[in-house]
């Protein structure tokens, strides 16, 4: 685990995977969109509005999935002080926030024609809105400190405490019997949804997962660049010794962490 967590190994591995994931994501998106918009039947009650589900539900899954990933990275960052875990959590937050916001917006666009309202304070909708606020709070918090270390500590703590909201979102439709319909895919006893609708749903979910992977890798690279820029600027400003001496904390975290992992 620690071996893969070395930034250089992460970059090499994900760099090799990148073209394949991009190709796969493009294919999945095209197939998913075709099935969602043309190749799937209309719902016997909801007519064509059921097509909103193929965006709404995968986006909601991704919103939760990204949050779990972010909270796990936060835990790893707190326990092992691993910079890459913190970087992954930071890179995940905007993707998760985007998917969560899309869930709320597409849900609204689905609710208006089918429920007759854009919004109700239903348990599922409310817990999903809290999820969005947790993402936004995390993003604001990690960037609120001059010292990135302190920002990541505060952010990781927030992400972990907020993880309690994930099961609440998932089971809200069972615990509180309100307007939002209960689960029809990830439920005990198997999916109750028709295969012709399950296929585009799952394909879109995999396409979104591919998109998450792509943006995650790009944002990790971005964050690594920014940390290196910060380290070089600090060493260039305050340190008269050559930069390559590697005695600066952030510049040397790659080697430094190796030493830490091998003991």
């Amino acid at each position: 685990m620690h071996r893969f967590a070395k930034p250089s190994v992460f970059l090499k591995l994900t760099g090799a995977m990148m073209p394949w994931v991009v190709a796969l994501t493009v294919i999945l998106t095209a197939a998913g969109l075709y099935l969602a918009l043309i190749g799937s039947p209309v719902d016997y009650q909801q007519g064509n509005t059921v097509r909103i589900m193929y965006i709404h539900v995968p986006a909601a899954w991704m919103g939760l999935f990204c949050y779990v990933g972010m909270a796990l990275c936060g835990a790893m960052s707190l326990i092992w002080k691993h910079p890459l875990a913190d970087i992954c959590a930071r890179a995940t937050a905007p993707v998760g926030a985007t998917f969560t916001a899309l869930t709320l917006i597409t849900g609204s666009l689905w609710g208006e024609p089918m429920w007759g309202t854009w919004w109700v304070w239903d348990a599922r909708l409310t817990s999903m809105l809290i999820l969005l606020f947790l993402y936004l709070g995390y993003i604001a918090l990690v960037n609120a400190f001059d010292d990135p270390e302190r920002g990541s500590k505060a952010g990781s703590a927030l992400a972990l405490v907020g993880a309690i909201n994930v099961p609440i979102v998932k089971f809200s439709v069972d615990w509180w019997n309100t307007l939002h319909q209960p689960a029809s895919v990830a439920r005990m006893g198997g999916p109750t949804i028709d295969p012709s609708m399950l296929a585009p749903l799952l394909i879109m979910a995999f396409a979104f997962t591919g998109y998450y992977f792509i943006v995650l890798v790009l944002r990790v690279r971005l964050e690594l660049n920014q940390r290196r820029i910060r380290a070089l600027q600090l060493s260039g400003l305050f340190d008269e010794r050559p930069v390559a001496s590697g005695d600066h904390d952030e510049l040397a975290y790659d080697q430094g962490h190796n030493a830490g992992a091998s003991k």
């Binding site: 969109l33 918009l37 007519g47 064509n48 509005t49 097509r51 909103i52 965006i55 709404h56 986006a59 899309l102 917006i105 597409t106 666009l109 689905w110 208006e112 024609p113």
Partner: peptide, 13 residues
């Protein structure tokens, strides 16, 4: 008749 809702969902996403 639901075009605006559906296309808005896909477009915004």
């Amino acid at each position: 008749g639901y075009g605006s809702y559906i296309w808005a969902s896909y477009g915004l996403a």
